[in-house]
């Protein structure tokens, strides 16, 4: 099993509240994504056993939802909102800055597997633009200095 005891327990705890089993698919995918960083066939099979829903139905739902990466990504998934409110506040230039700094293009992962840089649609941070979501965390009201120190901090983090 890839899913830990803790994740399994969490999925089960969420699943019991729903009147219909299938409703636990999204909650289960969310728990799995938070633990593993992505979801795929192997995960679908494990979830299927836990919530007693056919693997196919889990895969069918999962492939619709873009928030769950379907392949492993870098340790830090940098999700830059590039919709209109952020773009008016310089998100295009922030992406260019990150591309330079990390020496990758949008959509790519650094060689050391630390960072994956992607552009995403509006994350509801419009009045605190521009922003980056790093894995689960929002970083808002960004400027060049904050972006630089954010990346440096992540690089320095040891875990």
């Amino acid at each position: 099993m890839i899913l830990t005891e803790k994740s399994i327990a969490e999925i089960k705890e969420k699943a019991v509240h729903y009147p219909v089993k299938k409703s636990a698919i999204l909650p289960a995918l969310t728990v799995a994504y938070r633990q593993v960083g992505h979801v795929d066939e192997v995960i679908y099979k494990e979830i299927s056993k836990i919530i007693d829903v056919p693997t196919l139905e889990i895969a069918e739902a999962a492939t619709f939802y873009t928030m769950f990466p379907k392949k492993p990504r870098g340790k830090y998934l940098l999700q830059v909102c590039n919709n209109i409110s952020c773009a008016l506040r310089g998100s295009d230039s922030m992406i260019a800055h990150l591309e330079n700094k990390l020496d990758i293009k949008l959509g790519e992962t650094t060689e050391d597997n630390m960072f994956t840089l992607i552009g995403v649609e509006c994350l509801g941070s419009c009045s605190t633009a521009p922003m980056i979501q790093v894995n689960l965390d929002y970083h808002e009201n960004l400027d060049k200095k904050k972006v630089d120190s954010l990346i440096d901090e992540l690089k320095a983090k040891k875990d």
Binding site: V20, S23, L26, M67, F68
Partner: peptide
């Protein structure tokens, strides 16, 4: 909780999403 799809704000898509559908 949702999975990153604007359309799930539309009420009938939202209901499908709670049901575990696309």
């Amino acid at each position: 909780t949702g999975g990153g799809a604007y359309i799930c704000g539309e009420e009938t898509a939202l209901l499908n999403s709670i049901e575990g559908e696309r």
